[in-house]
């Protein structure tokens, strides 16, 4: 069986074409490892920053994004994901990265507002007309109310949910027993537990499961806009937690990749009026008082407490609530 074989030749050419790298020089690249609900926010922020950076330095810059549950993203960076900056849902996750020496332990002091360029809070997203009459945290523990929240073990947002519920109960009833009972009641009402905030929103809105979704304020507004102003509405509880999602430079990675200057400029840019304006439009509460004043009507005021004042910081809150055998495990255990 001897015949000419154009096939292998063709295959070889195809493979060669496949791997032919674009000849252009490597542009400057930054990787931002972020959590789930910031996808739309950073899409817009990145485009604006890239324009500003090119105007200022003449350099083209490419901003890459990676999104996932906050804990998962921190794990990936610890395992070697080369993120120049991390913009996660809670300080604890960045602390975990800092514990491996990738950035200094004092990272949170390096930028204004304890490294949080924007904040948010936990609100309720309910079905149109609020058929179950959900007004405040204790309504979530009522029998017959199905609550959707992501898994607090993997989702940063969901940890804020837990702390918000607890904080409300302690403030309202002055009793940890009542808080424990509330948490337990809420988690007995949870029919589905997704790993990330996005999965939970999709479960609630697209799959139509549950009566109320505990969500970041920005995520709730986004879901309302994208998926159905005619099907959903937002309910603000009387008291909630000030959710502080921080940002940080990962020093070791940025130094290795020689991106420190751009990465630092990127993080500072997040505090600029332009970026604050974008954040506010995406329903993140800006830290700049001017921008906040401009958007005051978008952010109805409610009583917000911080994790530091209520729980003494993330390290203690984590130990007490989210470590193995903590309050959360007790609340989620069957019966």
């Amino acid at each position: 069986m001897i015949r000419s074989r154009p096939l292998p030749l063709l295959a070889a050419t195809l493979v060669a074409a496949l791997f032919a790298a674009p000849a252009a020089g490597q542009p400057l690249r930054l990787l931002n490892a972020s959590y789930d609900p910031t996808r739309e926010l950073y899409q817009e922020l990145n485009a604006t920053f890239a324009r500003e950076w090119t105007a200022k330095t003449g350099q083209t810059i490419e901003l890459q994004q990676s999104h996932g549950g906050s804990g998962k993203q921190a794990r990936a960076v610890i395992d070697g994901l080369e993120a120049d900056v991390v913009t996660l849902a809670l300080a604890w996750d960045i602390d975990a990265i800092a514990a491996t020496g990738l950035l200094p332990k004092s990272w949170q002091e390096r930028l204004p507002h304890r490294s949080c360029p924007y904040t948010s809070t936990v609100v309720f997203l309910v079905r149109k007309g609020n058929p179950k009459g959900i007004r405040d945290w204790d309504d979530l523990a009522r029998p017959g109310v199905a609550v959707i929240t992501p898994n607090p073990k993997t989702s940063g947002g969901a940890r804020w949910n837990v702390l918000a519920a607890w904080g409300w109960a302690v403030r309202r009833h002055g009793s940890e027993e009542r808080a424990r009972a509330l948490l337990r009641g809420i988690f007995q009402n949870v029919p589905v537990l997704d790993t990330g905030a996005r999965g939970a929103t999709i479960t609630f809105v697209e799959r139509g499961i549950g009566d109320v979704l505990l969500a970041w304020e920005n995520e709730a507004w986004l879901a309302l806009r994208e998926l159905g102003p005619d099907r959903l509405e937002i309910v603000l509880p009387s008291v909630s937690i000030l959710a502080e999602p921080p940002v940080a430079l990962v020093d070791r990675v940025a130094d290795r990749r020689r991106t420190r200057a751009a990465a630092e400029a990127y993080l500072e840019f997040l505090y600029s009026p332009a970026a604050q304006e974008i954040a506010a439009r995406h329903h993140y509460r800006p830290t700049s008082p001017e921008v906040m004043a401009k958007h005051a009507t978008d952010f109805p005021s409610l009583e917000l407490f911080t994790i530091d004042e209520q729980f003494g910081g993330w390290a203690r809150a984590h130990e007490r609530f989210f470590a193995a055998g903590g309050e959360l495990d007790r609340a989620m255990a069957r019966r």
Partner: peptide
Amino acid sequence: AGNLPERTEIAPLLIMIRLEEY
């Protein structure tokens, strides 16, 4: 599956979750 612990959470997902919890 809905991925609810102790009800609809499969073992491979639990491995994934443990990984994500470091």
